[in-house]
């Protein structure tokens, strides 16, 4: 039993990273209506931002805030300089532009920080034992960080006027505009949120693994699948789907081995989408 609980915990922690990055993708998709391939590199930027903040201040919280700010800044700049200019183009044009932005970010970080790995210098701690099950104190902190990031995002989305406007634009952009909602302010709020959430995901991934310019790009595929699996445009769906994918991967390993665990997560996703094409929490969109 303890064996399985350990696997589930490992899966939940991996799932949080997937879920947060999927949340960033799904927010952009829901409101700006294109798949943002620069999400992975925004994660990397968040990880480097947090790393620098942590080195300067010695505090992970300060580092996390700096990382999130860096992610938000890149989100807003990407919108103002690129995506706003292309707003009337097809979403394929926007997708390609976001791939280009991702390349630029990755190359710039490669030049600035080098290609060798960096790590968060955190003290290594022995686990607490809950009966048979070892619990990593670090995992709890990371889960707490992820949880607070989620609370902020959902708080903004569901409790503030700007969040209400964002949801209105997501539901029906044309109707929102005729109701007098300024698209620019909504978009800037969106990119701040999406950039910061991706950055927090990147920071958590960076703390758990190693920080390198390619790390975010490597995590992009599971993030996209979680966004689709959860129902594209659904914030709750993205997080839940991320957790399910993470847990499914780890729990599958005794049966399929480690090489095929990634494939297994995708089998789960395919199965759900066959039964429920709009994803876990997706809404049916009528033809416009």
């Amino acid at each position: 039993m303890a064996f399985w609980i350990e696997l589930v915990i490992a899966g939940l922690v991996s799932g949080l990273v997937i879920g947060l990055s999927a949340l960033s993708i799904t927010l952009v998709f829901g409101i700006a209506r294109f798949p943002n391939a620069a999400t992975g590199d925004t994660m990397t930027l968040g990880a480097y931002g947090a790393l620098i903040g942590h080195r300067i201040t010695g505090s992970l919280i300060a580092g996390g805030i700096l990382g999130a700010a860096a992610g938000a800044l890149v989100g807003v700049l990407g919108y103002l300089l690129i995506f706003r200019q292309l707003a009337r183009r097809s979403n394929v044009a926007l997708l390609v532009a976001s791939i280009g932005l991702g390349f630029m970010l990755r190359a710039a970080m490669g030049v600035a920080f080098g290609h060798s790995q960096s790590v968060f210098q955190l003290p290594l701690v022995r686990p607490w034992r809950l009966g048979e099950v070892p619990i990593q104190p670090n995992d709890l902190w990371l889960a707490l960080a992820a949880g607070s990031a989620l609370m902020v995002v959902f708080g903004v989305l569901y409790l503030t006027p700007i969040g209400r406007r964002m949801r209105a634009v997501a539901d029906d952009a044309a109707l929102a505009r005729v109701s007098g909602i300024s698209p620019d302010r909504v978009m800037i709020a969106l990119w701040v949120l999406a950039g910061a959430v991706a950055a927090v995901a990147g920071m958590i991934a960076g703390i758990k693994t190693v920080v390198s310019p390619e790390m975010g790009w490597d995590l992009l595929l599971p993030a996209f699948s979680a966004a689709i699996f959860g129902g594209i445009g659904s914030p709750v769906g993205a997080v839940v789907a991320g957790l399910i994918l993470g847990v499914a991967q780890e729990v599958a390993t005794p049966f399929v081995g480690f090489t095929y665990k990634i494939a297994l997560a995708f089998v789960v996703m395919l199965f759900v989408l066959l039964v429920r094409p709009r994803g876990l929490f997706g809404k049916l969109e009528g033809a416009r």
């Binding site: 064996f3 991934a205 780890e250 390993t253 081995g257 990634i262």
Partner: peptide, 20 residues
């Protein structure tokens, strides 16, 4: 014997199997 994949966010399950 364990063979593992690159670019994973955690190798805990792999370690768990080896250490068992």
């Amino acid at each position: 014997e364990v063979v593992y994949e690159p670019n994973q966010s955690s190798y805990r399950a792999e370690l768990q199997k080896v250490l068992a």
